[in-house]
Amino acid sequence: MNTIEERLWNYIDGTCSEVDRKAVDILIAQDEVYRRKYQELLALNQAFSKMELDEPSMAFTYNVMEAIRAEHAQQPLKAGINKRIIKSISGFFIVSIALLLIMAISSVHTGGAANISVHLPDNLRLPDIKNYLNKPVLEGFLFFDIVLGLFLFDAWLRRKNVSKQV
């Protein structure tokens, strides 16, 4: 239920409907109580509008900018590195490796593969890889890989979580 004051504040703020505005117009013109209340609230509204803002200290802006500068100075080098530089370096290496591979593959003579003869010294005995790559070694290697993978995944999730909090 609207009180007189609530209705008049809505009228002053311009938040009432067109119908209500017209009704209040008539009431202010004809009803002494409404007119007095309206003038009182209008004066109050004008007084509120003329309130002055508080003044912060003279060094306010300086302090804010100093804090921002200090934060920038503390920024880790990793975050300060331009990502484009990293991308261009990795691009250079990828292109170089690709070119080397293409050159190596194109220089291979597939037709003469059967004629290749390698002369190894008689006293040289190459290790038999099959002896080392047995089942327990492979399983151990895979287990190590899985543990390492989990560690890296955990570290990545932690970094992601920290950056979200910041």
Partner: peptide
């Protein structure tokens, strides 16, 4: 921007 809005932010 800070200078412009510091008074209201502070108030």
């Amino acid at each position: 921007l800070v200078k412009r809005h510091q008074r209201f932010g502070f108030t």
